[in-house]
Amino acid sequence: MKLEVRSWKTAVLLLSICFGLFSTIQAQNQQARFKVVAFFTAKNDKAHISFVNEANRWFPKMAEKHHFTYDTSSNWTNLNAAFLANYQVVIFLDTRPEAPEQRAAFQQYMDKGGAWMGFHFAAFALTPSAYPQNWDWYHNAFIGAGSYKSNTWRPTSAILRVENRNHPATRHLPQTFRSAPNEWYRWTNDLTQNPNIRILLSIDPSSFPLGTGPKPHEIWHEGYYPVVWTNKQYRMLYVNMGHNDIDYANKTDKELSFTFDNETQNRLILDGLRWLASGKN
């Protein structure tokens, strides 16, 4: 009889230990989770559409592997306070909000400590164009780049140099690495003169000449070009990557490159995402 009681107590103890371990693991998983929502338009340039489609395949896989949730929306009316309150990080895969109330909601979200990651065309502004520079806070105060000035062509890989190795987004990167092919942007504002901007990556001079043309101004031979940066006043990360190479020349529209086919670059994006979700500046 005493043996049965002892066995029963042992079983209860083991169950308690297992339940405790399960609760601890469950709590750790809950703590590890964060929610991301990506807004996109994906209606204009085929290269941008290719990138958006690729991102919406890649991020869900990373979300499952690294314990976060990834939602998407092409309905920019969802850019409102009630909807954004459900997410720790907002991503703009391409374009930007246009309606005044959407812009106001996004600025309020960021002012209150929200986090944002923007890719490539999300920072584009050119007057006159379909995306004029008509949002001073976003392009000058927040991203800091001002307006689009020029770009390389065709999309080509570049050697990127890490400018700040102490930042959580870049601390696991080598000093230099080769990027995925991309169309690289140049801006009207000099980001080095903005005290709020921390440049994390730039194009290394060993990349020059960068671009293949055919127009001479589409090939860069010198200069300083930031490609990833953050703003000290906000939890944000702008990443200039996000333009896949498309076979326009032969009019096949075949996808010739993919942004997320680069493991080092992917590490930057994932570490940047974790930093944004951490709530730490």
Rank of each mutant, 00 (worst) to 15 (best):
E4Q: 12
R6F: 02
L15T: 01
L15D: 00
L21Y: 09
F22V: 09
F22I: 10
T24P: 01
I25E: 03
Q28I: 11
Q30Y: 12
A32N: 13
R33M: 08
V37D: 02
K43M: 07
A47Y: 11
A47C: 10
I49M: 14
F51C: 07
R57W: 03
W58E: 14
K61I: 09
M62S: 11
E64K: 15
E64D: 15
H66W: 11
Y70E: 03
T72M: 07
W76H: 06
L84V: 05
R96T: 14
P100W: 14
Q102G: 05
G113T: 01
M117D: 03
M117R: 05
H120N: 04
T127D: 10
W135I: 10
D136N: 09
W137M: 08
F142Q: 01
G144E: 04
G146W: 07
S147L: 02
N151E: 09
T156P: 01
A158H: 05
R161S: 14
R161E: 15
R161Q: 15
N164L: 11
A169G: 07
R171E: 04
L173A: 01
L173V: 03
S179K: 04
S179T: 12
N182A: 14
W187V: 11
T188Y: 06
N189I: 13
T192A: 15
L200A: 08
S206H: 05
L210R: 15
L210K: 15
G211H: 12
G223C: 10
Y225A: 08
K232C: 01
L237I: 12
N240R: 03
M241A: 13
A249G: 10
T252D: 10
D253L: 14
F258T: 06
E263T: 13
R267A: 02
W275R: 01
G279K: 04
G279P: 08
